[in-house]
Design a protein around this nucleic acid. Structure first.
Lengths: 176, 176
DNA sequence: GTTGATCTTTACGTTCACGTCAACTTTCGA
DNA sequence: TCGAAAGTTGACGTGAACGTAAAGATCAAC
């Protein structure tokens, strides 16, 4: 065991976490292969920095990005290609933010950029809203079914405790 | 064009819709291949009736079942195999309902069946709840981001209309 | 009873999202 | 400095969820 602690940096270079691909994989709960694959198909947009030997090195921000990607992958029911398109839009927003931080862009251009960004957000939001609504509906339906089942059991128990003296039979399911 | 109307039944056999696989596919928005595949892997549980020639024939209930399957397939992020397991549980519930309709089962057995059914529902509900919650959270986050973007645009517009006389510039995004 | 659309089974092909193996290099702790 | 662990780029393999093509049987309408 070589116990590779992920760069116990003691040198004063700020917050450049400098993680290796295996560390990142463990952190976000996936495999190096998957991370390389996402880079390969352009999901990770900018390829990570390399060090002299050619090994990929990741910043905390990149880890966050990967986490978000995996989250969206799991929640939205879309292909990685569609997800890539969506994130490309989000990257455009990042570009916008960078532009906006510089104070020398004229208001007309600023507005243009912001409006464009808003469009991207709206498209994502539409997607998420639809799915969230559908899932909520499904949840409601299931809850209803559950209620009916519980009521039936209670009715049955009521009749039973009327027949037998209150002998404390085991209750139904757990939380109500 | 042979204009195959799906069995314009005029004979008095009630509501036995008697749809063919192609009709069903069109109705629910999929392909015959997919329907056969679902039957093959046991997602459809009971194979549909056949007529003398061997052609599959579907009832309205079976179409409904297929619709539900596709809905769950799209909403829950699970494999068809896992879905099959889930639906097997639901089928057990159907069995329960059938048993319960007959009045000659003793209350102890009834309770047993109902409790089992409740367990199945709970497992499904847990799954759906988790996903619904996660999606709701994602939706909230996106809404927040959207709000901030809109606010920025409004601020920009406010400054603009202070600089220029109120010349009625085009407003930002659509619905608020 | 012919015909064209639709069905049947069988079987191989395909796409997506990775897994896995090979050959080799780099990194890191002892 | 040295050896094990982890990284690198190919390249091929794999399971899931179907698509597609072939060869034939059946169905609905004329």
């Amino acid at each position: 065991m070589a116990s590779n602690s992920p760069s116990t940096s003691k040198d004063g270079d700020g917050a450049q976490q400098n993680l290796r691909i295996g560390d990142v994989a463990r952190i976000v709960g996936t495999t190096p292969r998957t991370i390389r694959y996402y880079e390969e198909i352009g999901l990770l947009a900018q390829a990570p920095a390399r060090r002299s030997g050619g090994h990929r090195t990741y910043t905390a921000a990149e880890v966050e990005r990967l986490r978000e990607i995996m989250r969206l992958r799991d929640l939205l029911g879309i292909t990685l290609d569609e997800l890539r398109a969506l994130l490309a839009a989000e990257d455009a927003r990042a570009e916008v933010r960078a532009q906006l931080r510089r104070d020398d862009v004229d208001p007309a251009r600023r507005r243009e950029l912001l409006t464009e960004a808003l469009g991207h957000i709206d498209r994502q939001l539409e997607l998420v809203r639809r799915r969230a609504a559908e899932l909520a509906k499904l949840q409601d339906e299931l809850s209803e079914t559950r209620k009916r089942a519980k009521r039936k059991i209670r009715e049955l128990d009521a009749r039973a405790s009327a027949t037998f003296p209150p002998a404390r039979l085991a209750r139904a399911g757990g939380e109500d």
